[in-house]
Design a binder for these strands. Structure first.
Length: 549
RNA sequence: UGGGGUGUAGCCAAGUGGUAAGGCAACGGACUUUGACUCCGUCAUUCGUUGGUUCGAGUCCAUCCACCCCAGCCA
């Protein structure tokens, strides 16, 4: 998994801008990732982060991290902290360029006053309802009776708005552009509103709207390419209007790309919050959540997420990526890097009847066949072991070549054993019996006979207990939002399954929190708790399995 | 109905007038002490439609069709 970058239409534009006679010839590019601190980052944001930081990296520029905090009340410092943590975890570095839109409020206020003086803005006293009624429609223009207010009067009122003399919603500052525009964003958009609820941020009572604030933030930070998602395409004329009419030499350029949709999950912050509030999940970092913190807890690695972002590409097509593709990227990383261990999720005891009691043998097992340099470790074998209950059938179905009476399997790294019988108590198989072939030590078959199946096991004596959490998609449909009764009616009842009686190899007593292992033949599992008396693993992703029962 | 976008395989996605990359998924097969991994092979006579220009069109022009976004004092 080499980290290199494919081309895309945005990088083509940047290349063009940077080329000879391009608008940025001889300059550096400068991008930014500007989340609103009103929720936690998810995999969709990872795409935006990746695009912005990679554009900077590839073209030897830099990328800022900026909190777009222009709407107090929705926002919270804890979200800002979480965002910084997640971006850093993903492996991106904004160095010392962390900014907040609110730090620019004085400058924005000044720009707004300039615009009033240029007769490009006016204070409007329409209430929100009146604005709505007067917005016009597809064939009729909007109306504002305050459009021709004297500049001086607007300046006065705007100052009084700033001083907190009016209550929330009483008046707004509007840009004088075109009440008849086919683009509703240009029908004299509100650029400042009053939020005077006693809950003030930095002593401000007026707050700039996104459309006014964003271009100014970009200009003040000397952003060259302002990369955002498709729904802002209609806002670009307004973005450019602001840049052209304020006093700046910066010429940031907005380019839009399609945001990410992933099958079987949702990306809307509002809906993700709902899952948290309704306690459908344990929190923003529930391993089933598509949030960065959730993916981390699930066992996703920063490399796998970056690789995913790289591989899905960048375009303007609204598309939905298969969830399987994300899983593929994780497996690709873990296949190379995860240590292999043995763990039995649904244990059943296997007794090797011809193996001496009170004896044990030591065997070596490789830590990672894909990385011989990771060496081997010792495992202890003895008469009683646990095997997976799925690996035994009294009457084998077609193409089943694991344990069943009369059949031979290899116990990974040790011996070939032949199943000789089983015991049933209370209608349940409680023990399986087998005999081992002592000539097969190490799992070899000296006579060359083929043993189709090799199964994993742990020793009864020294295996340790663990809890394993198995996850499936949170939703049943590819597109949970399409459920007519709402996404909350599309929940998968099996999205979490907790196994409390798992037996794992004793080397896992040294596992570190967050460390990921391959449980052989089962999948990749990440240590979520490593407390002495409570070892918990989250299944990150299964192994691919061509055997369908 | 006004404005802005987008249509290439089941899913992403290259392609910039010279004869449809790549990945995922799927399906065959080889290998295998993980039914994993790895390796090999198959998988678009055709690019939303219909016309046109051209020696030549996924690429240019026109037409129609489908889908997405926009009428917050959200971002």
């Amino acid at each position: 998994m080499v980290e290199e970058t494919n081309n895309n239409f945005i990088f083509d534009i940047i290349k063009e801008d940077l080329s000879k006679n391009g608008i940025l010839e001889g300059k550096k590019i400068h991008t930014r990732f500007p989340p609103e601190p009103n929720g936690h980052l998810h995999i969709g944001h990872a795409k935006a982060i990746y695009i912005n930081f990679m554009a900077a990296k590839i073209f030897s520029g830099v990328c800022n991290l900026r909190m777009d905090d222009t709407n107090p009340g929705k926002e919270d410092e804890s979200f800002a902290q979480g965002i910084k943590r997640d971006v850093k975890w993903l492996g991106f570095d904004w160095e010392n360029r962390f900014y907040r839109a609110s730090d620019y409020f004085p400058q924005m206020y000044k720009f707004a006053c300039d615009l009033i003086n240029k007769d490009l803005c006016y204070v409007c006293e329409l209430t929100p309802e009146e604005v709505k009624q007067n917005r016009g429609d597809l064939s009729n223009p909007a109306i504002s009776p305050y459009r021709d207010r004297e500049k001086q009067e607007s300046i006065e009122l705007f100052k009084r708005m700033k001083n907190g003399e009016f209550e929330t919603g009483k008046m707004t500052l509007r840009a004088k552009i075109d009440l008849a525009s086919g683009n509703f964003n240009m029908r004299d958009p509100v650029i400042y509103r009053i939020i005077n609820d006693g809950n003030k941020t930095n002593n401000w009572y007026i707050f700039p709207m996104y459309d006014f604030a964003h271009p100014i933030e970009d200009a003040l930070e000397n952003i060259t390419h302002s990369l955002c998602s498709l729904e802002f395409e209609d806002h670009r004329p307004l973005y450019n209007w602001v840049i052209e009419n304020i006093d700046t030499s910066s010429k940031p350029r907005q380019i839009e790309f399609a945001r990410l949709s992933l099958s079987f999950t949702i990306m809307s912050k509002r809906k993700l919050s709902k899952l948290v509030e309704e306690k459908v999940v344990s929190g923003w970092d529930d391993p089933r959540m598509p949030t960065i913190s959730g993916l981390k807890k699930r066992g996703y690695t920063p490399l796998s997420i970056r690789s995913f972002c790289e591989k899905i590409g960048v375009s303007k097509v609204n598309s939905t990526v298969d969830y399987m593709f994300l899983e593929h990227c994780l497996r690709e990383d873990l296949n190379i890097n995860a240590k292999r261990v043995m763990a039995v999720l649904n244990p059943i005891k296997l007794i090797i009847t011809n193996y001496p009691e009170n004896t044990e043998e030591e065997f070596e097992i490789e830590n990672n066949p894909n990385r011989p340099e990771d060496g081997v470790r010792k495992i202890i074998f003895s008469r009683e072991i646990y095997v997976e209950s799925d690996d035994f059938m009294i009457k084998p179905i077609k193409k089943y070549f694991r344990l069943f009476p009369g059949n031979e399997v290899r116990l990974k790294s040790t011996y070939i054993v032949k199943c000789t019988g089983y015991k049933i108590t209370d209608n349940k198989i409680c023990e399986i019996y087998a005999e081992y072939d002592r000539k097969s030590r190490g799992g070899k078959s000296p006579d060359g006979r083929k043993v189709k199946s090799t199964i994993h096991w742990v020793n009864v004596k020294n295996s340790i207990n663990a809890v394993v959490k198995l996850y499936e998609n949170l939703f049943l449909s590819k597109n949970p939002e399409s459920n007519e009764k709402g996404f909350l009616k599309d929940l998968n009842p099996n999205s979490l399954k907790i196994l409390n009686n798992c037996k794992v190899e004793n080397c896992l007593s040294n596992a570190e929190k967050g460390e990921t292992f391959q449980f052989m033949r089962l999948g990749y599992f990440t240590a979520d708790s490593v407390d002495k008396d409570k070892l918990i693993f989250n299944r990150s992703v299964t192994l691919k399995d061509s055997y369908k029962i």
